[in-house]
Design a protein around this nucleic acid. Sequence first.
DNA 1: AACTTTAATGCAACTTAGTCGCATTAAATG
DNA 2: CATTTAATGCGACTAAGTTGCATTAAAGTT
Lengths: 120, 120
Amino acid sequence: MKTQELLRDKKLKVTPARIELIELFKREKKPLSYEDIKDTINMDRATFYRNMNKFEEVGLFSVFESNSKIRFFEFKLTPHAHFICIECHSIECIKSLDIKLDGYEVHNMTIKGRCKNCTL
Amino acid sequence: MKTQELLRDKKLKVTPARIELIELFKREKKPLSYEDIKDTINMDRATFYRNMNKFEEVGLFSVFESNSKIRFFEFKLTPHAHFICIECHSIECIKSLDIKLDGYEVHNMTIKGRCKNCTL
DNA sequence: AACTTTAATGCAACTTAGTCGCATTAAATG
DNA sequence: CATTTAATGCGACTAAGTTGCATTAAAGTT
Ligand SMILES: [Mn+2]
Ligand SMILES: [Mn+2]
Ligand SMILES: [Zn+2]
Ligand SMILES: [Zn+2]
């Protein structure tokens, strides 16, 4: 779906900052933090966070916290889990798990542990 | 296992603060934040966090971040997932899921979404 | 039991991801 | 184009968690 439609659909104003963010995350296809992209984006920190919070609210993005209080954002295509390594701090998308919980509305899931490289 | 043994086993010094923390979390049997217990424990904030970090390192506790950067600690009996509601912010232990990932060492898991009460 | 080593504690200062207030600017609607 | 309403930038702020340092208390040793 086109970025502008996406925004109109959610009744959000179409602004350069929002287009920039959505296009960037559509391209990257992986979770990124503010720190990761602050030098490549063209907007204030507050604008970044305000927009990402809104994107999460309306369901365009999923958000999760890594080890140590850093927030990661990902454009929501197909819902899937994320594995966060406590050793090397890498984050992997885990598409093989399909989590269902009766009665609950599952938005996203994170698994913490040691990744393949770090479980020697 | 007795608290003192538990500590000796992990080669941690047996101190009043550590005993207090472990006994408290053994009793409560659920994830708690510093905020939750600061008024009932008898130690400095720094001591609390230093000990909890150590407890996680040695595998006595599992730790996860809720919505919004607050860290929750739980005495590790049987590993299980936690459901965090984005609406009412409640945290539920989900014992029915048993997550295995080949090659990975899974420590803990959090699921975000709407809980039974909040999915009207 | 005293002696020594090493790690734990309290306190205050610090760090830092994220938020907020406010004045300014720019979308949307007609 | 005029009006309304929401988004932006900026700086100040918040608060969870950390760190440095002097002090105290475990644990091991004589
Ligand atoms: Mn992913
Ligand atoms: Mn639990
Ligand atoms: Zn790893
Ligand atoms: Zn709920």
